[in-house]
Design a protein around this nucleic acid. Structure first.
Length: 592
DNA sequence: GCCGTTTTCGGCCCGACTGTTTTCAGTCG
C-alpha cells in the first residue's frame, strides 16, 4: 500500500472529533461521546502513525493504545484500509455541516444547537443570524431576548477572531494584566495557570489565578473589588461574565481572559485545578474517587468524613493521591499520572542546565549583529559556548555564505577565540554552518569545508512541497552523510502560518539515532520544532536533542525558554540534551 | 465507547455562572 494515500493521525483524529460533535447534537450517550473525544486526543498525541501500528501489529496493536478500544480500533482500520468508514459516512450524511459551526459558537452547546435545528430547521450560521436579527428564536423554550443577543455577539466575535493564539502573544498580554492585578491592595499573589503555565504551543485563552488578601470574613467584598478592577482593565473590550470567584473578559484583540479569585488556604488546589489540562484533571479526580477522596479547586476531601486533607500547596494535592509532584508541562493525561504513581517521572531539563546555544546567525547572512556581539550576549547569560551557524550559499534571500566567505569567517572566529584565550576566558565560539539540505539530499557546502567546522547544522529551506517518501529520503541522506551534527527545525512548520512538511518522523529519528545526529528543538515561538509529541518519541528512541534559539539578534537568545519548556512537554531530561554538556563533552559528541 | 488494586458490568470529575427558570438546565473550563 502506498504510504502517501493513507490518512495520517491528524486527519483521523479530526474525524473522531467530528463524530463526537455530531453524536452530541443528536443527544447521544455522553460517555460514548467522551470516548470518541478521548480517543481523538490520544491519536493526536501519538508520535507514531496509526498506519504503522496497524501494519505492524494489526487491530490488537491499536486496542493496546490508551483510550482506544475495540470500537474505535475497528473504525481506524476501516478508515486506513478503505479510506472511509460507513458509520462516519452515515453520521455525516444526516448532519448539515453548518450545524457543527453553530456548535462551536461561544455559549452554544449541543442542546441549544440541536433544538434550533429540530424545531426551527436552522442549519447554518447565516440562517441563525438572520433568525436572531428578527427575534425569531424567542418562540423556542429556553430562548429569550438575552440569549438572542448573546448569539449575535458570538457570531460577530467568531467572524473577527479565529482560533488560538501563539503562546508568546498570550504571555505578553498576561504579563501586563498580571502586573495590573498584582498592584491591587486586595491581591496578595497572582499566578498564570491554564495552557500558559503548561507551555502549550498555542493557547485558547489566558487563565489567571489571584489570591485575595485580608480577613476571611470580608472575602466576598474583597473578591468583588478585585473583579470590579478586572472588568475595568484598560484593554478589556467585553465582559463575558462576572461572578464572585470567576469572571471572563475579552481583550481588544479577541483574546479571552479568565480570572479566578480564591483565598490563600486554597492556593495549591486552586492552582492545580486551573492549570489543567481538563483531561489531566478528570483523570486525577477519577483516581481520587477510587481512593475515597474528592478533588476540587477548594482542596482534597475525604468523601466519608468530609474532612479536608490537602489544598494549601500544589504538591500536597498530588501527595494526598499517592503521586509525586507532576510538572505543569506534563499535565496532559499522556501517562504522567501512571508514571507519578510508580515514581518514574522524568527529571526534566531546566533553564539552569543549558550551557550554550548551537544555532544562531550574524550580519554575515541574515542576522542583525556581529559574531562578537552575539558571543558577548551569551557570555552575559553565563553560557560556555556558542555556535555561529550562518546560512549557506543557496539561501540567497538570506545572503547565504559561499565557501570563500565561510572560510574567511572560520579564520576570524579562530583568531577571536585566540584573543579570548589570551584574556583568560574559557568561553568558546564554535565555527559552524546552517547548511541547506538541497532537493536531492546533498549539502550546500563541499565536504572538506564542512570537515573544517566544529559543528554542522543542516536544514531544509526550499522544496517544502515534496511528497513524504522523497522528503524523508532527502533528510535521511543528510543524516547519513557523516557531516551533519544537528537537523534544524525538522518539520519546517510555522505555527498558524505554514503546515509542517510531509515527513516520516519515526524513520528520520531512527536514522538520527543510528548515525549519532541530534534533532533540534527550535525555540522560535513560531516554530517550536520539533514539537512535544515528536520529542517524546525521540526520547523513547534514544535520540539526542539540541535546544537552540536560531537567534538572528542578541535579544532573541531569551527565546530559549520556549524551547526548554517545549522539551519539558516532551519529557526531555538533561541527559538527552547535547547543549547541557560541558564544552569537552559537547566536542566529543560532535566528533571533534 | 472505554476501562479494571472495589468491577469484564456498571461505572464514567467538579463547581461557577447565566438565563429563563419558580427549582434548574445548559454551558464552560
Amino acid at each position: 500500500m502506498d504510504d502517501k494515500d493513507l490518512m495520517d493521525n491528524r486527519q483521523i483524529a479530526a474525524i473522531f472529533h467530528t463524530v463526537a460533535d455530531i453524536l452530541e447534537v443528536g443527544g447521544d450517550n455522553k460517555y460514548r461521546i467522551r470516548s470518541y473525544r478521548t480517543g481523538a486526543d490520544a491519536i493526536e498525541d501519538l508520535g507514531v502513525e496509526l498506519s504503522t501500528i496497524l501494519e505492524e501489529s494489526g487491530v490488537p496493536g491499536l486496542i493496546e493504545l490508551p483510550g482506544i478500544g475495540k470500537g474505535i480500533a475497528e473504525k481506524v482500520e476501516e478508515l486506513l484500509t478503505t479510506g472511509s468508514c460507513a458509520f462516519v459516512e452515515e453520521l455525516l450524511g444526516r448532519t448539515p455541516p453548518g450545524i457543527l459551526d453553530i456548535l462551536r459558537l461561544s455559549g452554544m452547546g449541543p442542546k441549544k444547537t440541536g433544538a434550533l435545528y429540530r424545531e426551527l430547521g436552522i442549519d447554518s450560521i447565516e440562517a441563525l443570524e438572520a433568525a436572531a436579527r428578527v427575534g425569531g428564536l424567542q418562540t423556542l423554550a429556553g430562548f429569550g431576548e438575552k440569549t438572542e443577543q448573546k448569539i449575535l455577539k458570538a457570531i460577530k466575535s467568531m467572524k473577527s477572531f479565529a482560533g488560538r493564539h501563539r503562546i508568546s502573544i498570550g504571555r505578553k498580554y498576561a504579563a501586563r494584566l498580571m502586573q495590573y492585578l498584582q498592584a491591587l491592595p486586595e491581591v496578595s499573589r497572582v499566578e498564570a495557570a491554564g495552557s500558559l503555565r503548561r507551555w502549550r504551543e498555542n493557547i485558547g485563552d489566558i487563565d489567571i489565578l489571584a489570591i485575595s488578601s485580608g480577613p476571611e470574613s470580608e472575602s466576598e467584598a474583597i473578591s468583588e473589588a478585585i473583579m470590579a478592577a478586572f472588568v475595568t482593565y484598560p484593554g478589556v473590550s467585553d465582559v463575558v461574565m462576572k461572578g464572585h470567584t470567576r469572571s471572563t473578559v475579552l481583550l481588544e484583540n479577541g483574546l479571552q481572559v479568565d480570572l479566578r479569585v480564591l483565598g490563600s488556604d486554597d492556593f495549591g488546589s486552586a492552582l492545580q485545578h486551573f492549570t489543567g489540562s481538563k483531561a489531566h484533571n478528570v483523570a486525577i479526580r477519577e483516581r481520587a474517587k477510587r481512593l475515597g477522596l474528592k478533588v476540587s479547586e477548594y482542596g482534597v476531601f475525604n468523601i466519608k468524613s468530609g474532612k479536608r486533607v490537602a489544598g494549601a500547596a500544589e504538591a500536597d494535592v498530588y501527595e494526598a493521591l499517592g503521586l509525586s509532584f507532576i510538572a505543569p508541562e506534563l499535565r496532559e493525561d499522556r501517562g504522567e499520572i501512571e508514571a507519578a504513581k510508580e515514581g518514574r517521572l522524568p527529571e526534566l531539563i531546566g533553564p539552569g542546565d543549558i550551557r550554550g546555544d548551537l544555532h544562531c546567525h550574524t550580519v554575515a547572512s541574515d542576522g542583525a549583529h556581529t559574531y562578537e556581539q552575539m558571543a558577548e550576549a551569551v557570555m552575559a547569560l553565563g553560557y560556555e559556548y556558542l555556535a555561529i551557524t550562518d546560512h549557506s550559499r543557496s539561501l540567497g534571500i538570506a545572503h547565504g555564505l559561499d565557501s570563500e566567505r565561510l572560510l574567511k569567517q572560520v579564520e576570524e572566529i579562530d583568531s577571536y577565540n585566540e584573543k579570548l584565550r589570551k584574556r583568560g576566558k574559557s568561553f568558546r565560539l564554535l565555527k559552524g554552518s546552517e547548511v541547506d539540505i538541497l532537493s536531492d539530499g546533498s549539502l550546500d557546502h563541499p565536504d572538506e569545508l564542512l570537515g573544517r567546522l566544529d559543528i554542522v547544522v543542516a536544514a531544509i529551506h526550499s522544496g517544502f512541497n515534496m511528497e513524504k517518501a522523497g522528503m524523508t529520503a532527502r533528510v535521511i541522506k543528510a543524516i547519513e552523510s557523516g557531516r551533519v551534527n544537528i537537523i534544524a527545525h525538522p518539520t519546517g512548520r510555522l505555527i498558524g502560518m505554514r503546515e509542517p512538511f510531509a515527513i516520516d518522523m519515526e524513520a528520520v529519528l531512527k536514522a538520527a539515532k543510528e548515525h549519532g545526529v541530534a534533532m533540534e528543538v527550535n525555540s522560535y515561538p513560531e516554530r517550536l520544532d520539533l514539537n512535544d509529541v515528536h520529542l517524546r518519541l525521540a526520547k523513547e528512541l534514544g535520540v539526542k536533542v539540541a535546544i537552540s534559539t536560531d537567534a538572528h539578534a542578541t535579544d532573541q537568545f531569551a527565546n530559549i525558554e520556549y524551547g526548554i519548556h517545549t522539551a519539558r512537554r516532551g519529557w526531555i531530561e538533561p541527559v538527552d540534551v547535547i547543549n547541557s554538556l560541558p564544552l569537552e563533552g559537547l566536542l566529543e559528541f560532535l566528533g571533534r
